[in-house]
């Protein structure tokens, strides 16, 4: 039993946020279906089943437009914080350490340790890929989510156009529609505000015990120390 408890404790963040994601996605599906059917009734159409709604572009675009902006946020933050610093922020590294840092700092090449991942010790293209793997994967999820938003938003937009007895648009045409850019930018703006405010608020504010914060007693000017 202690072994099971330890395993659960050791994976608390991944487990709890994964379960919260599933619960909230169910909540989104239920409330989204209710709103969708309100609109169906308002235009004199038949309400749809949950199964129909879950396979609709209306549900899909609402999910993936939020996904793409979250992964854009993480992708930009991971890349931005290589080169950009914020003096005094726990979200930043020290102001004189900008850039990709030395092989010694990063335990790469000749500085790899015996317990380093094997692609680090390879020293060829595998080391180059592994050195960028977090950014590559988060960037790929962003691009794929944004593409998914474009095709699901396009399908949902055309369904609405047909309902209004207006002409459907091509996918490229949809990329020029206000609907696509409104969905995109309303999510992007909030992510940029959240990232910027996190970087700046963490200079002067503390959260005891959180690795996202400096120690409570750290000076406002201290950069990159975590509590």
């Amino acid at each position: 039993v202690t072994g099971v408890r330890r395993t659960l404790r050791d994976n608390g963040l991944g487990l709890v946020f994964g379960l919260l994601f599933l619960a909230m996605l169910v909540g989104q599906a239920v409330s989204g279906l209710a709103q969708y059917n309100d609109q169906q009734i308002a235009i004199g159409a038949e309400p749809v089943s949950l199964g129909h709604y879950l396979t609709s572009s209306s549900f899909a675009v609402d999910v993936v437009e939020n996904w793409q902006s979250e992964y854009l946020q993480f992708f930009l933050y991971i890349f931005g914080t290589i080169w950009l610093v914020q003096r005094g922020s726990s979200e930043s590294k020290e102001v004189d350490r900008t850039g990709v840092e030395s092989d010694a700092d990063q335990l790469v090449g000749a500085h790899a340790r015996s317990d380093s991942p094997c692609w680090v010790r390879a020293g060829d293209w595998r080391t180059a890929v592994f050195s960028r793997s977090l950014g590559i994967v988060l960037g790929a999820i962003f691009v794929l989510s944004w593409f998914a938003q474009s095709v699901t938003g396009w399908a949902a937009y055309n369904a609405e156009q047909l309902g209004n007895r207006e002409d459907p648009v091509t996918w490229l045409g949809y990329l020029g529609e206000p609907d696509f850019w409104n969905r995109t930018l309303q999510n992007w703006q909030s992510e940029m505000l959240a990232v910027g405010s996190m970087a700046v608020l963490a200079v002067y504010l503390r959260q005891r015990g959180s690795p996202e914060s400096k120690p409570v007693g750290a000076a406002h000017g201290d950069t990159s120390e975590t509590g």
Binding site: T7, L8, D10, N11, G14, L15, G18, T55, S56, S57, A60, V61, V63, V64, W67, V137, I141, L144, S145, F147, A148, S150, V151, T152, G153, W154, A155, N158, A159
Partner: peptide, 30 residues
């Protein structure tokens, strides 16, 4: 196999399958 590795595979798998599914929903014009 550790739970950490299972979580990694679950996250990557769910995201990948969901993105393929949603993209197909859009392309099929549902």
């Amino acid at each position: 196999v550790s739970l950490t590795r299972i979580l990694f595979i679950a996250y990557v798998g769910v995201i990948t399958i969901a993105l393929v599914y949603f993209t197909l929903v859009g392309l099929l014009g549902r």
